[in-house]
Amino acid sequence: MSDAAVPPAAAPVPVTLLRIFIEFLIIGGTSFGGVVPYLRGGLVTRTGWLDDREFVEMLSICQSLPGLNATNMAVLVGQKLRGPLGALVAIVAMCLPGALLMYIVGIFYRQHGDHAAVTGALKGVAAAAVGLILSTVVQLGKKSLDSSADFIFVVVTVVAVMGFHVSVPVALLGVGAAAILWHRPKAPTP
């Protein structure tokens, strides 16, 4: 056989802004129940824009920064593919479907939110959402709390915000600083 066209693996084909828009519109419009698996499916499996290692690394950056994973990931991936415009297109597309939906839901809820049937359904939805938040707490806790000190930091944060009505930024800076110092690098680096 001849050495016929095998494209070089890392051919830098520039991704168009339209492709970025469409891909993030799909993720933003289909990611029901949590965005991370859909991000992975779109960015790693479907388009191959990221490999698994890059994906995990970007996600961990997103998690240490303020901002939602969905929009921070859109910014980072858009930036990687097409710079500032890519980031802008990605975040807009990511937000568009959910924002449109909630805009309509908001208007509908304001007009019909106090009908008995709607109220009943909303009570159930809200209770289920509490269960969902608590399950996220447990899952994240299992993954990233590895000492009793960490549990103390969790408790102090909760008690500060809930019990003493310390505002979230104060708790964040105060407990955050203490926790970062607690986890300070052990040995001086050469």
Binding site: Q63, S64, I133, L134, T136, V137, L140, G141, S144, L145, D150, F151, F153, V154, V155, V156, T157, V158, V161, M162, V168, A171, L172, V175, G176, A177, A178, A179, I180, L181, W182, H183
Partner: peptide, 13 residues
């Protein structure tokens, strides 16, 4: 590592 427990605490709160 330091932000992890604080962000979990904020989520729980």
């Amino acid at each position: 590592k330091g932000l992890a427990p604080v962000s979990i605490g904020l989520l729980l709160a």
